[in-house]
Amino acid sequence: MRKMGRTIQEMRPHRRTASRGKQMDYFVQQLINGLTLGSIYGLIAIGYTMVYGIIGMINFAHGDIFMLGGFAALIVFLVLTSLFAGIPVALLLLVMILVGMLVTGLWNWTIERIAYRPLRGSFRLAPLITAIGMSITLSNFIQVTQGPRNKPIPQLVTDVYHFGDITIALKQIVIVVLTAVLLAAFWYIVNKTPLGRAQRATEQDRKMAALLGVDVDRTISVTFIMGAALAAVAGAMYLMYYGVSSFTDGFTPGVKAFTAAVLGGIGSLPGAVIGGLLIGLIESLWSAYFSIEYKDVATFAILAIVLIFKPTGLLGRPEVEKV
């Protein structure tokens, strides 16, 4: 959280210039920053929303799954750069992301099997508490095994493009483009494949889906793996963007991504992405024009306001109490 503040602060001096064109540039610059951040939140938010949609559970440990993804990428980076000096950056990034996706997917699969599945259909708060316990376990596991200090790595992608006064870093482009590609692939899986159909069926009515031959357990497992894989990509990109990982990284982005999921309407996939982008934009614009200190307050306040006036989020299905 503090890290993001710093990066945005660095951009601040641009604001001194007062001409209208400059102001516009400054605004566009903030939009780009917000979009980048929002892409990361959106990718994490999808994991929250999918799990909530399919088993109605707030997966509190999802933020820490994202953190695991970041650490996996960090370790792969260290190992590869020391074993193969001069490895091309694109290949390096690709391996970081892929290994991160596999390892975090495996973790989330195991966690679901061991900690959540036995509680499926039990008391509603039990899985929530288990997930909170898992979240505490995961972050402390990384603290114990990798140490409590921040882990900095050198900048991976340093190219910067200038368009007049607007600066776009290549890493921002990578993040936004990669997010868009993943979302397209993801949309295809959910809407066009038998797997996606099984997911949607399970979401609608788990018992009925099972009766009709959908392997519900497998579908839920796959959902957890997919959510974790997307979070791992977000983790790798977060590392690339900020150049540092810490075992506490799961919490704030996790809560914000969850906020994004709720803001967009929990259970809705486009909602998660739109919510993520909105939160990214609110955060960067608020920091730019009001105060960095209160940017998270603004995010949470807007969430509360949206929910008060539209209790199911922006794209959530309106919920009529069936009496």
Binding site: L119, F123, A126, T130, G133, I136, V144
Partner: peptide
Amino acid sequence: LYRMLLFGLAMVIVMLFKPR
């Protein structure tokens, strides 16, 4: 260092055996 790690694990284990 292991305090919170064990706390988290204990939360999970108690819930698994005694969900109520």
